[in-house]
Every structure is written in structure tokens, then in C-alpha cells.
């Protein structure tokens, strides 16, 4: 029995298996946003109707900011969920959509068909999406009354998730 081989082997093997085991339960695609708990990035965008919307305008009331586009399949799924939620939370929460890499004309046609749930802000350079650290649409940010981000959600929303996310800021 060569002890040296055994010891060196154990030193190499055990941490390796431990680390790989630790990696198993985790989803490599799920990334925590560093913005949660921080003030939302400032923005100044124009919506489809031509009105300017600034971050400051949202102060005083909780807000749900959703990044979406018409070419994104999960966004299409969550659209009716947002329409219903916007109706349900009408007076208590501001619902803001930010268009991610899409054309205003396409958006208008889409909204005419499927119904709108809030102002749709156009982010022509994608600068606001970058400031919010958007990895891919749909992504949803929840802002409390002071404009601090309390939660970020990746992927299509369902009614229960919307309720849970908003419960914290109401």
C-alpha cells in the first residue's frame, strides 16, 4: 500500500466530488439580480402614445415593470395574465411595460389584437433594459413605493406569482 498515492488521491478526489455534488441541485441559468434591494435605475422613456415616463413619476405607488416583446413566446403566454392583474390591482399598482427590441408598429398591431395592460414604453437603444440587467424577455421587476426593487422574476408570470410578488409591496 502506497500511502502517498492514497493521501494525494484523497486530497484530489474528495473536494472534486463534493463540488460537483454541490453543483447538482442548482440551475446554472438562474441568476440572482444584484439590483434587488437597491433603487431602480433611472429612466426616461416615451410610450406608444407619445407621453414621457420617468422613474420619478412612479414614486408614491408600487410598480410592476415588465420587459417584453411580441416575438417572445412566453411573453405571449403571460400577456392575458398581465391584462387580468392590471385590472385587479388597477388603483394600487402601476403596470409598466418596456418593449424589448421590437418595432412600435408591430407592438401596436399586437396590442390592438390582444389588449393593453399599461403604458408600453419604447426603449430604442435597449439602454433601459441594460440598466435593469435584463438577460432575456420576459422579465419582471417589482418596485415599492420608494422606487426600490423588491423582486425580479424571470420567465412567464402566472396569476399566483403576480399575487405573491405584489403582496410584499402592498
Amino acid at each position: 500500500m502506497n500511502r502517498r498515492v492514497l493521501v494525494v488521491g484523497a486530497i484530489l478526489v474528495l473536494p472534486l466530488v463534493w463540488v460537483l455534488g454541490m453543483g447538482l441541485g442548482k440551475d446554472p441559468k438562474r441568476i440572482e439580480s444584484p439590483l434587488v434591494g437597491k433603487p431602480a435605475p433611472a429612466f426616461e422613456l416615451v410610450d406608444l402614445a407619445g407621453n414621457t415616463v420617468r422613474l420619478e413619476d412612479l414614486a408614491g405607488k408600487p410598480a410592476l415593470i415588465n420587459f417584453w416583446s411580441t416575438w417572445c413566446v412566453p411573453c405571449v403566454y403571460e400577456h392575458p395574465v398581465l391584462v387580468a392583474a392590471a385590472r385587479r390591482y388597477r388603483d394600487r399598482v402601476q403596470f409598466i411595460g418596456v418593449i424589448y427590441q421590437d418595432e412600435p408598429t408591430t407592438i401596436r398591431a399586437y396590442l390592438a389584437r390582444s389588449g393593453a395592460w399599461g403604458p408600453s414604453l419604447i426603449d430604442p437603444t435597449g439602454r433601459t433594459a441594460i440598466a435593469f440587467g435584463v438577460y432575456g424577455v420576459p422579465e419582471t421587476f417589482i418596485l415599492d413605493r420608494s422606487g426600490t426593487i423588491t423582486a425580479k422574476y424571470d420567465g412567464a408570470l402566472d396569476p399566483a406569482t403576480v399575487d405573491a410578488l405584489l403582496a410584499e409591496v402592498l
Partner: peptide
């Protein structure tokens, strides 16, 4: 994406590693 065979392969990998280290230690001399 997130397949179920991860733990099985990891177990096999672990067994192989241990077997190799032990056999090496026993016989390398």
C-alpha cells in the same frame, strides 16, 4: 437541461475515482 441522470453519473464517477485511487495505492509499487 436539468436531467435526472446527473446523480447517477456522479455516483459512477465517484466509484471510479475511489477504485482508481485505491488500486493505484495498492499496486503502483
Amino acid at each position: 437541461s436539468q436531467s435526472s441522470i446527473g446523480p447517477t453519473i456522479l455516483t459512477f464517477f465517484g466509484i471510479c475515482l475511489v477504485a482508481v485511487v485505491v488500486i493505484l495505492a495498492l499496486r503502483v509499487d
